[in-house]
Nucleic acid binder design. Structure first.
Length: 108
DNA sequence: GCGGTGACGGTCG
DNA sequence: CCGACCGCCACCG
């Protein structure tokens, strides 16, 4: 079955595993997707997601616990979506990773 | 095949 | 807490 999974496919697969009400960091997703240090690529891939996708891209934030997406590029929408799931996001786009980061069975 | 680029990450000031 | 710098890697022209 080779690994036809284009990198984007693996990234999307990992992001779909992030449960509602939790968030994951780009680096965490990259790691779980087997991309190593290609965290930047995660953001690049999410940016390339087609409209109407089922991937909860809004649950992915940076390691600093902040929304990276510029407000005028969807950051506003991302913040509202997170708030709608019960994730506390300050007006500056800060999220408490201690409280909301996804922890898949002790790994990662 | 080479080089520029980026929804990042970690360190330093 | 915030900004600047450098290092990593895959995508695209």
């Amino acid at each position: 079955m080779r690994r036809p999974s284009p990198t984007y496919g693996r990234i999307a697969a990992v992001v779909r595993r992030v449960p509602r009400g939790s968030v994951a960091t780009y680096g965490q997703v990259a790691r779980l997707a087997g991309l190593g240090q290609a965290a930047r690529q995660v953001g690049y891939a999410l940016h390339a997601l087609p409209p109407g996708t089922t991937v909860p891209w809004h649950r992915v934030i940076n390691a600093a616990g902040r929304i990276s997406l510029p407000p005028d590029a969807g950051g506003i929408d991302q913040r509202l979506r997170l708030l709608a799931e019960g994730v506390t996001v300050t007006e500056t786009g800060r999220v408490s990773l201690e409280r909301f980061q996804w922890r898949p069975r002790g790994r990662a």
